[in-house]
Write a protein that binds this DNA or RNA. Structure first.
Lengths: 210, 210
DNA sequence: AGGACTATGTAACCAATGTTACCACATTTA
DNA sequence: TAAATGTGGTAACATTGGTTACATAGTCCT
């Protein structure tokens, strides 16, 4: 665990903090598709991502979802932090997008480290900043862009986080993430295929040039 | 200044911190409509709101705006915090919705207080939590609701922060905040008037029952 | 009063996208 | 193998909301 921790967080945290994390943290491996947090749940520990990608979703009244952003290596769930400290319920759902390795740190330590380690404070503030910026970008894309551009942005981001030009999703799954219907996505994807931007197949699509 | 500070923050901060704030902070009064922060600017101090309301806006590529949320008494701009600490540019615009009183605190102190005062840490985390939740609610309303519901929510919120059932805005101004056109707003307001929910006049509208 | 400007009302039209329906084909299951 | 299920293609249609255009009326200025 110590090696994996150092690889992802060694440049962020001083040795004393790294050691504390190793002592109190729990290493976990999470399979793709595993639901790591549910809306309304209380959370008692905070994840530090070592590898893999977690997708964070928001839900409407009918239970339909909207993708907010992805969490990656070296990041943490800012929402968790305040949920833990303030004893509040989660506002979002988190699902492992890929197989994921992470270290769970008990809440109690967070408050202590914030007082004790400058590097931890920087990490926490940086996390909040990044998360807020991701939320703003998601908001931009919904408020300011039309579905074709949102879809393109989505595909680019998906390729980036999965490090793979082939996306193994059905049109229905993409539609869920973008909070629209399968028919709309099929329509737009077909248009993109005709423009030579992607290649379509059953249960996959390949990015050619976006 | 000490009295006004205590009234808004006395229940949040211990006396030692309140005294420090008085020593290093600058009291400011801002008139309605004053632009307090612009996108792309760097910020060197952080506002603690004593009274009044600040509206926070996001902008698209063409310069059109979208209202994100209002900041009120006892709150602060979370974005400012990380912008200050990380030397980053502002992602948002902030404009005084009403006449506003606030205390500006130099950046350097923030880092110090985060280590030193538990109440300051709580305040900072609480602020982030609130701001993220406001962003999520804004995102919900754009992603999940249609314009008529967004307008109703907007009017309710506007009445709440201004503590006044009469809203002195033109249809055009409302349209800007909701990132739509004047015609659309006029159309919807007229419908609401016909349903007896509001009363319309030139440069104002009165909420009857939403 | 007359003219300029601003705010609002409204119709007609258009574009984006959501909805419904149905078909073809692939995959899985009985 | 037959049936059921999952996936994608496509047409037709409905709805929301954005756009253009123009009329009416209040306000301000001279």
């Amino acid at each position: 665990m110590i090696n994996e921790l150092k690889e992802s967080y060694g440049h962020l945290f001083e040795d004393a903090l790294l050691n504390e994390i190793v002592q109190v943290g729990t290493f976990k491996e999470i399979p793709e598709g595993f639901k790591m947090m549910e809306i309304g749940e209380y959370v008692r520990s905070m994840p530090l991502l070592i590898s893999g990608v977690i997708k964070v979703l928001r839900e409407d009244n009918e239970g339909d979802e909207l993708l907010l952003y992805y969490l990656e290596k070296g990041e943490t769930c800012s929402m968790t932090m305040t949920c833990c400290l303030g004893q509040k319920q989660s506002e979002i759902r988190a699902i492992a997008e890929t197989d994921t390795k992470l270290i769970m740190v008990p809440v109690a330590k967070m408050e202590e480290w914030t007082a004790k380690y400058k590097s931890w404070r920087n990490f926490v503030f940086e996390s909040y900043h990044n998360r807020i910026n991701e939320l703003l970008m998601t908001l931009d894309s919904i408020a300011f862009y039309q579905m074709d551009e949102r879809l393109t942005q989505y595909l680019i981001e998906k390729v980036r986080v999965n490090e793979n030009d082939i996306i193994n999703s059905t049109h229905q799954e993409i539609a869920y993430d973008l909070y629209t219907s399968r028919v709309v996505i099929s329509r737009l994807l077909k248009k993109m295929e005709q423009l030579g931007k992607i290649e379509l197949g059953r249960n996959y699509l390949k990015i050619i040039k976006l």
